[in-house]
C-alpha cells in the first residue's frame, strides 16, 4: 500500500513537472501553427462522429429512463428541462471527456510512445527542433480548445436526442420543447460546466503526452503508454469533476 501510494505521488509529481514545462514553452516564440491546426482537425473534427453518436444516445436514454419516475409525480412536462440541465451540467462534459480520453489520450500516448521507441523524438532533438514544443504544446493546446467545443456540440446533440425521446411517448412540438429547455437553463448552469471542460481537455492532452514521452524502449511500452494514458486521464477527469462540483456549489 505504501509503495502504491509512493508511486502515485511520484506520478503526480512527474506530471506536474511535465505540465510546468508546458506553461514555459507555450508562451515562447515560434508556435507551431501548422501542427496545431493538424491536431485540431485530428482531435476535434475526427471525433465528431463518436461524439454525435454518444451525445444523441445520452439524451435519448436519459429521457426514456427518467420518464417513468417523472410520470409517477405527474411531472412529464419537466422532462426537457431536467434532461438538458443534467446533460449540460454533468453528463455531457464527463461522458464526452471520458470518450475523448479513450480516443485522444490513448492515441497521443501510443503515437508519442512509438516515436520515442523508434528514436524519432531523439531525431527531432538532434535536428535542433524542440520536440516538446512541436509535439506536446501543439497537442495539449489543441485538446484544451477542442474538448470544450466537442462538449458544447454533445450538449446540443443530447438535447436533440431528448426531443426524440420525449416524442416516443407523446407529441411535443420542437419549438415548445426548446422553449422548455431554455426556460430551465440559467447562466450559472453553463459557465462552470464549460470552464471545467478546458481542464478536462488540458489533462487529456498533457497526460497522453507525458505517458508517450516517458515510454521506455521496446514495443511493449507503447501499449503500456496508451493504456496508462487512458487510465490516468479518466481518473483525473473524475477528480477534476469532483473539485469543480464542490467549487460550483461554493461560489454559484
Amino acid at each position: 500500500m505504501n509503495l502504491y501510494l509512493k508511486n502515485v505521488f511520484i506520478l503526480v509529481g512527474n506530471i506536474t513537472a511535465f505540465s510546468s514545462r508546458f506553461f514555459k514553452e507555450v508562451f515562447k516564440t515560434g508556435f507551431e501553427f501548422r501542427e496545431f491546426a493538424r491536431q485540431c482537425y485530428s482531435i476535434g473534427y475526427k471525433s465528431l462522429p463518436l461524439v454525435t453518436i454518444t451525445g444523441f444516445i445520452m439524451g435519448l436514454v436519459l429521457t426514456i429512463q427518467s420518464r417513468p419516475a417523472m410520470a409517477k409525480f405527474g411531472a412529464e412536462s419537466w422532462i426537457p428541462g431536467m434532461v438538458s440541465l443534467s446533460l449540460i451540467r454533468e453528463i455531457a462534459p464527463v461522458i464526452t471527456a471520458l470518450i475523448c480520453a479513450g480516443r485522444i489520450s490513448s492515441g497521443i500516448g501510443a503515437e508519442l510512445g512509438s516515436m520515442k521507441v523508434t528514436e524519432q523524438i531523439d531525431a527531432m532533438e538532434v535536428s535542433a527542433i524542440n520536440p516538446y514544443k512541436y509535439l506536446v504544446v501543439t497537442r495539449t493546446v489543441a485538446t484544451t480548445l477542442m474538448i470544450p467545443i466537442l462538449v458544447i456540440y454533445a450538449d446540443l446533440i443530447g438535447i436533440l436526442g431528448g426531443y426524440i425521446g420525449v416524442n416516443m411517448h407523446g407529441e411535443v412540438n420542437i419549438v415548445r420543447y426548446f422553449s422548455q429547455v431554455f426556460e430551465s437553463l440559467e447562466y450559472v448552469d453553463l459557465l462552470p460546466a464549460t470552464i471545467k471542460t478546458f481542464f478536462f481537455g488540458f489533462f487529456i492532452g498533457i497526460i497522453g503526452c507525458y505517458e508517450g514521452f516517458n515510454a521506455s524502449s521496446g514495443t511493449e511500452s507503447v501499449g503500456k503508454a496508451a493504456n496508462s494514458a487512458v487510465v490516468s486521464a479518466s481518473l483525473t477527469i473524475f477528480i477534476i469533476d469532483m473539485i469543480a462540483v464542490q467549487l460550483t456549489d461554493l461560489f454559484f
Binding site: T118, E119, Q120, D122, A123, E125, V126, S127
Partner: peptide
C-alpha cells in the same frame, strides 16, 4: 546541433 547530421540505427524517419 545545427552543424551535426545524425544517422540513427533504423533511420528514425518521421512516420
Amino acid at each position: 546541433r545545427m552543424k551535426i547530421g545524425f544517422l540513427f540505427q533504423n533511420g528514425a524517419l518521421y512516420d
